[in-house]
Amino acid sequence: MSVGIVLVSHSPELAGATAEMAGSLAGTDVTIAPAGGTDDGRFGTSIELIQAAVGDADGGDGVCVVMDMGSSVLTAKTLLTELEDDDDGPAVRLADAPFVEGAVAASVLASTGQDLDAVVRAAEDAWAMRKL
């Protein structure tokens, strides 16, 4: 098994395309679930879509959530608070990471079977990866 990845974006297309790209780099051993837009397909954030994506991504080893900004972050934090009340729920961590780079780093590391702490750290270390 591996840690699952959830990608939260205001845009359904951005979440989906980032999941597709991270998946192409990480291989098929890791589940990457996009949660983009509102529950009626507009730009924005839906706690129900994020919760469903967490369920899809959870294979028993925990879930690392990468968000774009603003309401994505606040809604993911709100969901985390709700899940903390549920003892039987999946282990979920939010990564404080740049969206695309963090998604790729987390997915690649998850594909190697590393644990949730290491996957979250990889996403957060993406801030430090200079391009030039």
């Binding site: 924005g44 706690i47 309401s71």
Partner: peptide, 8 residues
């Protein structure tokens, strides 16, 4: 149901 940051 709000969809933006004001919801949470």
């Amino acid at each position: 149901k709000t969809g933006g940051a004001s919801g949470p």
